[in-house]
């Protein structure tokens, strides 16, 4: 966990103008979290900021774990990190075929920080990549040997009224909770139509609380009693098809949260770089 990630951060929507229209390619993967340290001047008037831009054709996939972090032991021969990566590749193919641009936080066993070869990627780095993409949906992929079917979770944070000018890194998802809940409901309905067993709930799994996009944790469990059935290609394909199909309709429904106007007392936020670096949640 980086100190950067723990600092209170500014909302990342101060995107370059080019990102305000849906680009054909996502923003370049960053080497640090999207949100940058607080450095705000006092607002000249309490006008409501512009809406947060969303790239409706961009989906972020985060295959959890990787490298020395194997995740859970699914069976004698299967570990979680391999299952999540396989499902992510399958999803990427299906989403790309449907016109999406897919941003993945890792494409190999060991995740690495972009532009910083050899550096291990933290969970905050993954959130930074996702936040830079301004995606229509962010899916954190997990796998487990317990239970069966698909487990779907959104963040346990309570919904906030809107996205403030300065967003706490650890609760950045709060403004997106209504959208995440809506996506979870529609995804659950899609799984139900597909005949896949589903458990939908809330969970606190890092880095979902730091994501500034409609975000869900999708945990793949075995299809039956045999834990190795989680590797079944037909089963994974059914799950991926269901998710990809639902995201096609979701891209036209996603709405950014309202942005809250900066309070007049924001003059106190004349942060210096050292202030921002030393900020604690």
């Amino acid at each position: 966990m980086t100190t950067m990630g723990r600092a209170q951060v500014a909302e990342p929507a101060a995107a370059p103008p080019a990102q305000k229209s849906a680009p054909s390619r996502p923003a370049t993967a960053p080497s640090k979290p999207a949100a940058t340290p607080v450095r705000h001047a006092a607002p000249s008037s309490p006008s409501v900021p512009a809406p947060i831009p969303i790239n409706r054709t961009v989906i972020v996939l985060d295959p959890a774990h990787g490298g020395v972090d194997s995740g859970s032991q699914i069976s004698d021969t299967t570990v979680e990190k391999n299952v999540t990566l396989a499902l992510a590749f399958r999803l990427r193919s299906l989403l790309t075929a449907r016109g999406f641009t897919v941003v993945m936080t890792r494409e190999a066993d060991a995740p690495a920080v972009p532009n910083a070869a050899g550096s291990a990627m933290t969970l905050d780095d993954r959130a930074g990549i996702a936040n830079h993409a301004h995606a229509a949906a962010c899916l954190v992929l997990h796998a487990t040997p317990s239970g069966s079917g698909v487990h779907l979770y959104r963040s346990e944070l309570g919904a906030s009224e809107g996205q403030p000018t300065v967003v706490p890194w650890l609760t950045a998802q709060a403004a997106w909770i209504p959208q995440s809940q809506l996506l979870a409901n529609q995804m659950a309905a899609a799984f139900s139509r597909s005949g896949l067993a589903l458990i939908a709930s809330n969970a606190s799994v890092r880095p979902i609380d730091s994501l500034t996009c409609p975000a869900l944790v999708v945990e793949l469990a075995p299809s039956g009693d045999d834990a190795d059935s989680i590797n079944d290609t037909d089963y994974q394909q059914r799950v991926a098809l269901t998710i990809a199909g639902e995201l096609v309709s979701w891209q036209n429904q996603v709405q950014p949260p309202a942005r809250l106007a900066a309070a007049p007392s924001a003059t106190v936020v004349q942060a210096t770089p050292s202030d921002a670096a030393g900020a604690q949640p």
């Binding site: 995740g71 859970s72 032991q73 979680e80 997990h142 487990t144 040997p145 317990s146 239970g147 487990h151 979770y153 458990i199 709930s201 969970a203 606190s204 799994v205 944790v217 945990e219 469990a221």
Partner: peptide, 12 residues
């Protein structure tokens, strides 16, 4: 403790 989002969340 068993590893997994569901099983860990249920314990907590």
């Amino acid at each position: 403790h068993p590893s997994g989002v569901e099983v860990e969340s249920l314990t907590l």
